[in-house]
Amino acid sequence: MKKKGIFYLLEVFIAILYLIPFYVLISMSLKTSTDLSSKWVFPGYFYFDNYRNAWKEAQLGSALINNIIITVCSVIFLIVIGACASYPLARFKSKLNKFIYTLFIACMIVPALTILVPLYRFVIDIGGINTHWALILLLVTFSLPLTIFLYTGFIGSVPKSLDEAALMDGCSRVGIFFRIILPQLKPVTSTVVILTGVGIWNDYQFSVFFLQSKDMQTITVSLSSFISQFQSNISYVAAGCLIGMLPIAALYLFMQKYFIKGLTDGSVKG
């Protein structure tokens, strides 16, 4: 039983460690700007004006809607394009396919900044600046390598005998994908949705350059310019940060079972 005691102690210690940043953030966000008490001291009052101001100034309402549209569309396209692409790469390891696979995976390494200006010019030429669809295409493209990596790994673990059986029954190769493989992909799809969805939701490096007007911007971009505008008022900044993380944190807390299950199911076989 001594063992259990140590475990409980560790648990408490780690829990406190992880709760501290949130505690400090909340306490900062509830103070007025002239309250200079230590960050550990929780204010004796609740000054909710900071939240109201942050919401209004950073236009977080429209930013939230933009975020939802962009993330949902991106993730759906990502799954469809990624899963389709992974099937031939996992099953038919010809020389060409091996090369294509390596190419896709290598793209994971390319940092967004190296391609920023040529990309910016290109997107202007196709009329995509300050639009959601152009940003969605970009975010999908950049999440494709990881998606394909996870999907090919997972499909590789689906026994080939299933394919053979289907083939014998006259099913086409493409048909095999839709009828045999796809149903099996639920676990890894959850992993993909979570890993890429969170990344796309929190994206900053693309959104800051490609979304220009306040009514098109996402939460991270609005929040960032809000922070530079009001940096002298850290209560505003704290309130803004909290509101910024609220949507996805709330989603996570309600769906945490699925989040974690999705992540575990998909990653083990991959």
Binding site: I81, G82, C84, A85, S86, Y87, P88, L89, R91, F92, L96, N97, I100, F104, L144, I148, R173, V174, F177
Partner: peptide, 8 residues
């Protein structure tokens, strides 16, 4: 089948 990775 290989056309499936064309969009990507």
């Amino acid at each position: 089948v290989n056309f499936m990775y064309l969009p990507a």
